[in-house]
Nucleic acid binder design. Structure first.
Lengths: 241, 241
DNA sequence: ATTATCTATAGATCTATAGATAATGC
DNA sequence: ATTATCTATAGATCTATAGATAATGC
């Protein structure tokens, strides 16, 4: 019976519309629903991402998620032990890549403005490109519970990396710096979430405007086009590893 | 029976702890609970503000709100026709003052940087000082429904005022401006909400750091101390009217 | 044997309405 | 008469578990 360990073995269906060839073991679904994802787990996460962001986490029943996938409510529990775990998996996805990038940037020797620009750019791009605006879930009161301590820790790490880079930028600009501003680049990047929520779609200008504004806000008066092209080279280099 | 029109006539109790002298008409409460507010309506809003921000809107039952006030669940409906209406009243409170200030600032003749500084300062101060971090409710999916169209409109007005002021600042700085940055001051101010949510309390540095950063972000290179003292004078003047 | 689904259900909610009751105010 | 509370309840949920079933894989 039990599983719910998240170890998806193989895809069960080949395509995303109604016509499906079952490929793996297990009783066939009584109904097929078009839903993105190569595994049941990925299908569930996609459906939950849509429903959690459009109707809210607490307002989305496990039945609604199951319906959106085309399975019965109880079948969810084969893939996730609890509703919590679906949310946790979605949240983890949203910060894994920026955290990893930030860790690589720490070891890099480029100037701080270049590295901060690169991190902000990468992060904004991902927040804009993501299929669902999952950052809107960061303010859920549920995340303050023990259950999500690990997620909070990861996000604090990311925030710490932003702050370290921002402090280094401020140090380089001398008296032009604003005291306390080192906390703001991380926050400014995450405003993409509210913009996307209010405007109903990802802002097109954000990828350039927000990293630019982050550096200016810290008192950095250098050439933004240069920062941008340096950051682009840096990101390419790191992606190659 | 019916009421729920929000027209509170008079206080029912004189004090905020258990010892209470009933003053108005109506059946006495079977239980008294310490809760801030001079009228039942205010008590309900205070309790709901606490519970909505700490447990979430959808997770907070009308029973929980009633319990926190010291009345029965059904008695809420004498003051609010539906749970929606409690949320709407709380949200309206959060933007009434900044919207009014922004409207007065539109008629003012001070330079744009002074006016933007004043608006951001006032708004940040209120977001920090408010008893509950109600801005955390702005991302609720419920707010996208028709029910909250009026609230969205008011908030859009506030956003529009920020943008108009920011555009004027950018115009004054010539080539130093970042295209698209006029949308950011409003967003930067609202980052107080996530900071307060993550740190568990209002940031002490925000009142100065955020207005400062908003101007720098727009490419404004003037004296920030001067902007701050000019804004202080402007706010005093407007408060006097 | 293992896997992924299914059916059925226990037990615990939640919102809003109907109508009774106990105060004050005229 | 008006007001603010009360009790009682209809009707509609929701999460998670138990155990059956229908595939594939060895």
């Amino acid at each position: 019976m039990a599983a719910a360990d998240g170890a998806d073995r193989r895809p069960r269906s080949r395509c995303q519309n109604g016509q499906v060839a079952n490929l793996g073991p297990g009783r066939p679904r009584s109904e097929q629903r078009p839903r993105r994802g190569h595994t049941p787990r990925a299908e569930i996460l996609d459906a939950a991402g849509e429903l959690f962001t459009t109707n809210g986490y607490a307002n989305t029943s496990t039945r609604a998620v199951a319906d959106a996938v085309g399975i019965r409510q109880a079948s969810l529990y084969h893939h996730f032990a609890a509703k919590d775990d679906i949310l946790d998996a979605l949240l983890a996805e949203t910060i894994a890549a920026p955290v990893e990038l930030a860790e690589r940037l720490r070891a890099d020797t480029d100037p701080a403005p270049t590295r901060l620009y690169a991190l902000a750019w990468f992060d904004v791009r991902q927040l804009c490109a993501a299929r669902w605006n999952l950052g809107a879930l960061y303010l859920l009161p549920e995340l303050r519970t023990e259950r999500f301590a690990a997620f909070r820790l990861r996000r604090d790490e990311l925030r710490g990396h932003y702050e370290t880079l921002a402090e280094a930028v401020i140090e380089g600009v001398g008296a032009a710096g604003i005291p306390g501003a080192e906390v703001l680049p991380f926050r400014l990047v995450e405003t993409v979430i509210s913009i996307r929520s209010d405007e109903g779609r990802a802002p097109t200008y954000a990828e350039q405007t927000i990293p630019d504004a982050a550096l200016r806000m810290l008192g950095w008066a250098g050439d933004l086009e240069e920062a941008r092209s340096d950051a682009a080279l840096l990101l390419e280099r790191l992606a190659a590893d």
